[in-house]
Structure formats: structure tokens, C-alpha cells
Amino acid sequence: MMLTGIAIWLITIAAALVLWRRDRPALAKGGRFAVGTLKNVLPIMLLALPMAGFLTVLVPDRFAAILFGAETGLRGHLLATVVGALIPGGPFVSFPIVLALWNSGAGAAQMVTLISAWSVLAVNRVIVWEAPLMGWRFVLLRLVTGFWLPLASGLLAEAMLALLPPGSIGR
């Protein structure tokens, strides 16, 4: 995580330099955006982190391994699709849940499927936002073209993991 921190700061500084040379007002705008987002995100995060801890303690050891473990294959991916589609709320809800499941033995590829299903299928978002704003015809088009994406991303992740040395992504 130390290396990540350094890498992200380097990329951020590079982006700042590019904006400094090309578009200085955008630099200030980006900074204000960051402060504004921090004000919104920090209180949520301070509540979401204890939730991640509580869930990690609550989910029994090996529980997720049985449902979503790396060895569960297609069954695990299909279950992850259904569960992911039903998780409501923003990233502050879904990512702590994924962390707890991962700590209790879920496979990385299965968690890719779960996050994709939460992103693309999002039953809750469809009902609250998408259908009222975009109409059911658009929702139908999006679901017809998108229902297979979570499984595809999970299987692609599995293929990529097979190429990596074992244990390079895991808990």
C-alpha cells in the first residue's frame, strides 16, 4: 500500500503539472472539486469503515469460501451475479461487503463478478433512478445488452488470474 500511495501521488502531481501548463483555471477547479468531494465522502467513509470491520467479524470464517470460493466455478459466479444485483446503495455499502466476503474466503474473480453485477444490474438504481428518468424502454435495452457482462468480466478475470503467479492477488 506504501508503493500505491507513492504511485498515485506521482500520477496526481503529473496531472497537476499538465493542467498547470495547459489550463490553470482547471487546476483550481479540480482542487475545489477535491475539497468538496472530501467534505461529502469523509463522513460517509468514517461510518462505512466500522461497518467493514463489523461485517468482517460477523461473516463466519470460510462462509464466503463455500459460496463464492475460487473453486466454486460457474456456480459461484452465478450466485455472485444475483447477490451483486441486489446490493443497494453506493460504493460505501458494496465495497465494505465485498471486503468482508473476500476476507472470509471468496475468490477474487467471483468478487469481480459481484462488483460488475452491482454496477450494471443494480436493481435498486434501476427502480429509483433509471426507469423514472430514462423510461423502461431504455432500461430494457440496457439490460438485454448488459445481463451477460458480470459473468463475462468474472470469467475474463479468472483467465487473467490463471496467467499470474498464484497468490499475486489474494487475501
Partner: peptide, 12 residues
Amino acid sequence: AALLLAGFVQAG
């Protein structure tokens, strides 16, 4: 850093 980078992408 993540927030700043997100802000720069957004503003750029």
C-alpha cells in the same frame, strides 16, 4: 491524492 486526481480529471 485520489480525490485530487479525480478532481483534475473532472475539471480537465
